[in-house]
Design a protein around this nucleic acid. Structure first.
Lengths: 331, 331
DNA sequence: GCGCATCAGTTAAGCGCATAACTAAGGTAC
DNA sequence: GTACCTTAGTTATGCGCTTAACTGATGCGC
């Protein structure tokens, strides 16, 4: 198991003091250290297999290099996992460690942050904002990828989840394919409220701007859409259905089958998320996909700015975060 | 932002030395400290809002109280998320912090462990076992929830993912409902190989033991089952289909619809995972569900044992890790 | 030849906690 | 009364790293 290789070991191997090693390995400015010495230090570190102790560094610096990712208690679809992957990779490039935590209900997040002193906190979706404020008071920058309205003051720390844009894109896709009377189908789940509202608003405004009839708003109380709801929809003259997400859209497809309604003949359906199962349905599900790399880059840019890192901004400004995957359920 | 409240602050508030505070707050044995003093210390800690610095503790002890959870790069279905939740809760009760990491391809996990000195590492599913061995050499206990064969020596550190049992339960359910000629449908994905093999083996052995014909083994190359495959299956006299998981089973349902094959009339279908979407299909999907709390308790018991914690073993020995959810796709 | 700037480092003081080793006071046994 | 044990603590060191402050040598202008 062997004793740990410390800075001091590297220092004596390289014939310098620990301070010098620290300066070299951290690339600190303001210290003239000739290249020859730098090389000796780096070689020694490599040869000895030196790995810094994050605990010691944290203690000395007052903040760790952990970026704490608070993930929601919802099942983590492939969208969230994809974003996590992008964030993990991006943090690694910045010399930070992305570690994810599923906050437990009733847990004291501020305390958690006092314990581990993360360099930054990234929050996915919209938890209770009050603990976040207290984390900020600790001096830890909090970046939120969320849908709710920005609280006053944290505008700069919130990367918006596209919601309005999703709704517009759904509606636009349907309208482009000739549908003029739309409906919006949403789950009842309270946790999803901010997302639901945003997406509906997008559909609603899109219709308003084009002078179309306002969309019919439908809510599914539990486990999937019913054939009844669907049939009523069709009877009302709705021909295009924007569904909150692909999971729910799958249930719509099933209900349509059961009700002998053809898709997209009787009614066109578009979901959100681009889940794999959507490729296997009959017809394959047309959907809105999130561009995961673009989204994680935007989140990381906020973190970089908040930490004042001299990092090459991952440029993601111009790229789209959403794309339409045309498959077969929209005509 | 205020200075951090340290042990020393608590000590002077309680009128004792920092050593005493440390002993009290950590409940260390072998030190006679009267209840009165204990109360004074604890009150002071509470009143001041003391939170220990995990960095300092880690540095002093040589190991942190982080339990590193290495999650696979696969999309995290609700099974894995459910287990994560159970582990997070369980660790919290043990005074540990569960933090999850998505290992990046090519990343040096041993180095990561030298950096953060986790109290333990939990690995979900089956990554390359070699880095795991090197982590163990660091003295960090590694608990794996995996399907592959136990490597020699780590038997005790591996909690088996039920695979054989899943296959048996699928086959058993179909047989109980009168099906005697079975098939097994699997994805081609190489990452899933150990799970696939185990589940097939379960089906296969079950059939052998009952004197039934050996199951037909079918593989889906990409994106969902085809109607052709299904029809061939039926033509071969197969009436019961064990599908690798619910995602794939949904594609089977769709294919059956397309092929005008009735389920379970022409062929019965059973999946694995109990994904939500399975409740909304037509017919609703019968499936094998994992008992997530039981599984996370078993994993944690291994961790507790490996760390030699004096913890109340979360008793999960007798409980089933699998249950059948009868819905409609099996007869 | 002196003062001053620059270079190339070093010294040493923490960061907050755990813990081995010690102490001082009081009680007991004989 | 002395030797010893227990109780109830304290002292002080070290975990590995960062960083402000310092030092000694060299070069340069004039």
């Amino acid at each position: 198991m062997g004793r740990r290789v410390t800075l001091a070991d590297v220092a004596s191997a390289a014939g310098v003091s620990t301070a010098t090693v620290s300066y070299v390995l951290n690339d600190r400015q303001g210290h003239s250290i000739p290249e020859g010495t730098r090389v000796r230090v780096r070689d020694a570190a490599r040869d000895l297999g030196y790995t810094p102790s994050s605990a010691a560094r944290t203690l000395a610096r007052g903040r760790s290099d952990i970026v704490l990712l608070l993930v929601p208690e919802l099942p983590l679809g492939h969208v969230l996992v994809g974003i996590m992957e992008g964030l993990t990779r991006g943090c690694a490039r910045l010399g930070l460690q992305l570690l994810a935590r599923l906050p437990l209900p009733g847990e004291d997040l501020e305390r958690l942050c006092r314990e581990i002193m993360p360099a930054a906190v990234i929050v996915l979706l919209d938890p209770d904002p009050r603990p976040l404020a207290r984390i900020r008071d600790l001096g830890v920058p909090v970046t939120q990828w969320g849908a709710g309205p920005s609280a006053p003051g944290d505008d700069s720390e919130k990367v918006p989840v596209p919601t309005d844009a999703v709704g517009r894109l759904q509606a636009g896709t349907l309208v482009t394919h000739g549908h003029t009377r739309l409906a919006f189908l949403e789950p009842a789940d309270a946790a999803l409220r901010p997302l639901v509202e945003g997406r509906f608003a997008g559909v609603d405004r899109y219709c308003a701007e084009r002078g179309l009839e306002p969309p019919v708003r439908l809510r599914v109380e539990r486990a999937g859409a019913s054939s009844r709801t669907l049939r009523r929809c069709v009877d009302d003259g709705v021909t295009g259905l924007c569904v909150y997400n692909d999971d729910l859209a799958l249930s719509v497809l099933a209900a349509a089958h059961a009700a002998k309604l053809s898709i997209p003949g009787s009614i066109a359906v578009i979901g959100v998320d681009d889940i794999p199962a959507g490729q296997w349905t009959d017809p394959p599900l047309t959907t809105i996909a999130f561009e995961l790399d673009t989204i994680s880059a935007r989140i990381l840019n906020h973190v970089v700015r908040a930490l004042g890192l001299p990092a090459p901004a991952l440029d993601s400004a111009g790229e789209p975060e959403l794309v339409v995957r045309m498959r077969g359920s929209v005509g």
